[in-house]
Design a binder for these strands. Structure first.
Length: 458
RNA sequence: GGCCGGUUGGCAGAGUGGCUCAUGCAGAGGACUGCAAAUCCUUGUACAUCGGUUCAAUUCCGGUACCGGCCUCCA
């Protein structure tokens, strides 16, 4: 069994991963707030953790890994959307949730073991707030319950900032009921027209950070292995989550390994609506297959900032064309279940080095293209598929990849190819080329082989 | 201002104290092909900058420059 090493934000080092219980490896990853279409960044982060999930399943056994990724369905952004559109909140969150799940599936992500929704865990959140009040880590003020950061000596250690810095950085108006400007909300009052739940502190709703503490402790326990998310969540979200959980459950260390994914940029700068470089997943997926986007994400290390360009996306599509072409040519070659290439597994074990892992896929494809004997072909194809599975790639039928879901038997195209074959037989190259060009104009590329002519959509 | 991270060939992007080499795309040449396409073979170009440590640094340490992120909702 290979050791996995992960960059741990908590210690600022790459560390050997040792799970608390190797029969129950637990990972929690912050998911989206469901108020609008998922954007490109919402696509990148889950792909990274999906590869980690696949690696953990490989190393520890699929049944020994528990991956939880939450859905935030109570939040002021959702409330704002409701005010803007007048649509019921439940309708907004359901629709957005369904879009999100569909996007995740298209990207080739395995379904996590659980996708808890915040609104199903309100009782657990209230229990945590009660605990924090009981043990002196929280206080009530003007209908709010706030976390008292001064009650936690190492508050700020995850994000690596001191209290002094945070005060210096506090640029926003500080509510005067806060004892310390850095104190954050655990529970806030709701007006009757806002979503809310009855609590010991009146009708209200939870602060954003609380839900992750509640769901992780409920589904994974108060101590678990990996906590992930985008690195924009390190502060304040993860810092606060950790503070809540460690203080509510006094002997808990919460997550042992904090793994953070680098931000996605577009054309070299942060993606934002004001810069006009903001893309939702479905916008991008209208221009290239989702698998190409997944491959593109994997060409860079998860930890680094990732620069998205359409040029890169189309290059990734071309790479997949090459991979699927090798599979298409060996469509009837039988495969056996084999172990993934050792080097690929090593690359992934080294803090998810997906760019290096991909180089093994290229090698596999090259080997498959060169294989001559039936035995070698089978071996190489099996290896390619086993390696691709680790990365969540090449999960489609090559016929479907090239010809589309229902374009596999196009009589018109077949007829033209037949006519061209006749022309070729008569050495009527002009007619043959004319037919080929005609099809090319329709995006159909022909390929002559000793076995005949095949076609695919470009 | 504070805290992080980065700077590798035309581009994307790994990695390493010295060895023949990341990988891919693009470029050049070749094989195959009626011509293509696909595939295969061969091939050039690199480690921001200035110091230090060392027999030896792109790789370790320090300074400088530039770039990016976070510090406020954010994957």
């Amino acid at each position: 069994m290979q050791d996995i090493y992960l960059s741990n934000t908590l210690t600022r080092r790459k560390e050997k991963f040792v799970p608390l219980d190797c029969c129950n490896v637990r990972m929690y990853v912050c998911g989206p707030t469901v108020y609008d279409r998922a954007h490109l960044g919402n696509g990148k982060t889950p792909v990274s953790y999906d590869v980690l999930y696949r690696l953990l399943r490989y190393v520890y056994g699929a049944e020994h890994v528990n991956y939880v990724s939450n859905i935030t369905d109570v939040d002021d952004k959702i409330l704002n959307k409701h005010k803007e559109t007048g649509r019921p909140i439940r309708e907004i969150t359901e629709e957005t949730y369904n879009w999100y799940i569909a996007d995740m599936k298209k990207l080739g992500n395995l379904e996590p073991n659980a996708r808890p929704r915040a609104t199903d865990y309100i009782e657990d959140m209230i229990e945590i707030v009660k605990k924090l009040l009981d043990n002196g880590h929280a206080y009530e003020a003007e209908g709010h319950v706030l976390f008292d950061v001064d009650s936690m000596p190492d508050y700020g250690s995850l994000s690596g900032r001191s209290m002094k810095e945070m005060l210096a950085g506090a640029r926003i108006d500080v509510a005067d009921y806060k004892k310390n400007p850095a104190d954050f909300i655990l529970w806030k009052p709701s007006t009757p027209d806002q979503p809310g739940w009855n609590s010991p502190w009146g009708y209200g709703r939870p602060g954003w950070h609380l839900e992750c503490s509640a769901m992780s402790s409920k589904l994974l326990g108060t101590d678990f292995d990996i906590h992930g998310g985008g690195n924009d969540l390190i502060f304040p979200h993860h810092e606060n989550e950790r503070a809540q959980s460690c203080c509510a459950f006094p002997n808990s260390k919460f997550a042992r390994y904090w793994v953070h994914a680098g931000m996605l940029m577009v054309d070299g700068v942060k993606m934002s609506k004001s810069l006009g470089n903001f893309y939702t997943l479905d916008e991008v997926l209208a221009k290239a297959p989702a698998e190409a986007l997944r491959l593109l994400f994997l060409t860079a290390h998860y930890h680094q900032p990732f620069n998205f360009t359409f040029e890169g996306l189309f290059a990734a599509k071309a790479t997949l064309d090459k991979f699927y072409n090798a599979l298409l040519k060996n469509g009837d070659v039988p495969t056996a279940k084999v172990e993934p290439t050792e080097g690929l597994v090593s690359a992934l074990c080294d803090d998810l080095n997906t760019p290096l892992a991909l180089s093994f896929l290229h090698e596999d494809v090259n080997n498959l293209n060169k294989a001559e004997s039936a035995e070698d072909k089978s071996k190489c194809k099996s290896q390619l598929l086993a390696d691709a599975y680790m990365l969540g790639l090449l999960y489609q039928d090559p016929e479907v990849w090239f010809k589309g879901e229902n374009g596999g038997d196009d009589a018109e195209i077949e007829a033209k190819i037949k006519a061209r074959t006749e022309a070729k037989k008569n050495k009527d190259w002009a007619t043959a080329d004319a037919i080929r060009n005609e099809l090319k104009a329709q995006g159909i590329v022909l390929e002559d082989t000793p076995q005949g002519t095949s076609w695919k959509r470009a």
